[in-house]
Design a protein around this nucleic acid. Structure first.
Lengths: 163, 163
DNA sequence: GTGCGTCACTTGAACGCTCAACCACGCTCT
DNA sequence: AGAGCGTGGTTGAGCGTTCAAGTGACGCAC
């Protein structure tokens, strides 16, 4: 058994910072969304991903991929959002195994009402701290990390421009 | 009501990557720690922070600061770890309001047994994807974000990286 | 020295997430 | 046609987290 390679100063700084961001940033954004409309960051993201999809619907498994979540977690959340009338589940016409989640008009309206405040929060809690170069570096580094965690994550193929 | 400033391409890339990392990285590390010793990443961090403190103890509120957690969350977790014999809570000698959490010898031994595997996982899941320059950039950018979220976070004093 | 606000926690209930089990369907192979 | 396997999704139990409320203790004002 060989001696483990402990972290050096920079590695430790990077890791501790990421760990803190990891708990503080979602908490801050969750907070804003929850006071604005009783929605969690994850809920918001589920609806946002649907709103950007062709026809505003996606199979559950694709939606899970886009939100980096397990199918189980997504299933529970979609059930909750469906009860609120923001989503609807329908069987897939040609493959009876798949369920598609559709964003309803009410859901879309809710999302549009929430979006400006949310984007503003993303800026004030996060992006405003960074220079243009920082943002660019972070995108590059972040995508490297994502690739390491899931080498065919949808992010790595995508080219969009909205939240 | 003015038009919200939507995210540009790089901002969106950075934000989506961070969002994914945020769910994938803790999941991966939690997983390793849980199979190695039925411990969560947060549990591990609580013990690690205590192990690095003078005398291996800290007041609850300072421990909460070092783990970026709420006092409530910490209180529940410390109760759990205390039941396992890894921690002990004692009243502060001069201020009866504060409780100090002490890492026990058993807790320290557990931590030391877990540490090599955990550090290895931090490397393989995360640091190994990055060059030396990436790590440096990430530390710099990460600390900026932390500062924006909590302007006197302990991390920012520890590494002496502020004016 | 007596209020009164604040501080440092703790608690319990409600809610969310994870994990393992399960079901139904489709595909392939024989 | 049927067995077996993989895929897509759901469910419920157990556990973890959050939120709001509560408990003492300190400290300052008067």
């Amino acid at each position: 058994m060989t001696e483990p390679r402990w972290l050096n100063a920079d590695e430790r700084r990077a890791w501790l910072a990421l760990l803190s961001i990891n708990t503080l940033l979602p908490a801050a954004l969750d907070n804003q969304l929850h006071t604005a409309g009783k929605v969690s960051l994850f809920d918001y993201n589920v609806m946002a991903m649907l709103s950007e999809a062709e026809g505003r619907f996606l199979p559950m498994s694709q939606l899970a991929a886009r939100t980096s979540s397990s199918l189980s977690r997504l299933s529970h959340v979609v059930a909750k959002l469906e009860k609120r009338g923001w989503l609807e589940r329908r069987p897939h016409p040609s493959d009876a195994r798949v369920t598609t989640a559709h964003l309803s008009d009410v859901g879309m309206a809710t999302l549009e009402a929430l979006a400006p405040g949310h984007v503003e929060a993303v800026r004030t809690k996060f992006l405003d701290a960074l220079t243009e170069r920082d943002v660019n570096d972070l995108a590059r580094i972040g995508e490297k990390i994502v690739a390491r965690l899931d080498d065919d994550h949808w992010i790595l193929r995508e080219t969009g421009s909205r939240p």
